[in-house]
């Protein structure tokens, strides 16, 4: 008997379909409509993922929760990437006092557990989506900055960068046109992994009551609300938990794939330069 092997891209398509089909269906349903008569209804044709303690449609709340969690996570990752790459490139390329100060700040932030820092920040902030994005971006940019800085410091002395200076390119053109395209590919895998972890962190803050507040549908908040009904209606906790897991799994696999591809590209470049 021949064992069936699923390639990583095919597996990602399958997982993506499992994630997105319920989301697409749920977006046509009402996530906030209360119907106490339907409270704690088990999964059924009318409520495919059941109903919560207020009779709200769990499928609809999962779908809108996806928009909130993934939208916030994409914003956090994009802001962290832009900030980290900008600061890291400037530090690595310019060097000097700016690079020294940047290194100290990065070392301090790396020493702090990011989720704990976000919890402390959220305890002080007004608990809205902007505060949540800021609390997770503040520690989030460091990993990009460290990698971008190291790459930029190595590229600064690369022959093609020296040649760009020889032909008259200025620092800004060198940074944007020649350094950024050579720094970004290895960061793509890191960003994918960060996206998966950020969804988990957004949900974790929601579960702790420090994230988005009810009645906003959010996966961590849904798990928090389901705690009193864990034995009576376990689908209320299991369903959002499964979607967090699915989201993380997709982006962890994607990260591994992107890192492997970036590695192949690096090897090709190194082989060509040898």
């Amino acid at each position: 008997m021949t064992a069936m092997r699923l390639s990583v891209p095919s597996f990602l398509v399958v997982l993506g379909t499992i994630l997105l089909v319920p989301v697409a269906v749920g977006l046509f349903r009402d996530p906030t409509g209360i119907s106490l008569a339907d409270a704690l209804i088990a999964p059924s044709p009318a409520f495919p993922f059941g109903a919560d303690h207020m009779g709200r449609d769990v499928l609809a709340r999962i779908a809108y929760g996806f928009l909130w969690d993934s939208g916030l996570s994409v914003t956090i990752v994009a802001a962290s990437l832009a900030l980290g790459v900008g600061l890291g490139l400037a530090g690595g390329y310019l060097g000097g006092a700016f690079d020294g100060a940047l290194t100290i700040v990065m070392d301090l932030l790396v020493a702090l557990p990011h989720l704990v820092l976000a919890i402390v920040l959220m305890a002080y902030f007004d608990q809205g989506p902007v505060a949540l994005a800021v609390a997770l971006t503040l520690p989030g940019w460091v990993k990009y900055a460290r990698l971008a800085r190291a790459r930029a410091a190595a590229l600064r002395e690369a022959d093609f960068i020296l040649m760009e200076r020889v032909v008259g390119a200025g620092p800004l053109r060198i940074l944007l046109r020649h350094m950024v395209p050579n720094v970004l590919p290895p960061l793509a895998g890191l960003a994918a992994l960060h996206l998966g972890h950020t969804v988990l962190n957004v949900a974790a803050l929601g579960f702790l009551g420090l994230g988005l507040q009810p009645p906003t549908p959010e996966w961590g908040g849904m798990i928090l609300e389901s705690r009193p009904y864990l034995y009576q209606a376990p689908w209320l906790a299991i369903t959002p938990g499964c979607f967090v897991f699915l989201f993380m799994m997709i982006f962890t696999l994607l990260a591994a794939r992107l890192e492997a591809r970036a590695g192949e590209g690096e090897r090709e470049d190194a082989h060509a330069a040898a």
């Binding site: 022959d159 093609f160 020889v166 032909v167 050579n182 060509a272 330069a273």
Partner: peptide
């Protein structure tokens, strides 16, 4: 001024941006 003095290096394959 840069235009006035040009350079041909020993390893030209490394003298061009690999992504351009």
């Amino acid at each position: 001024m840069r235009r006035l003095v040009q350079y041909v290096p020993q390893h030209p394959e490394a003298a061009f941006n690999p992504r351009l």
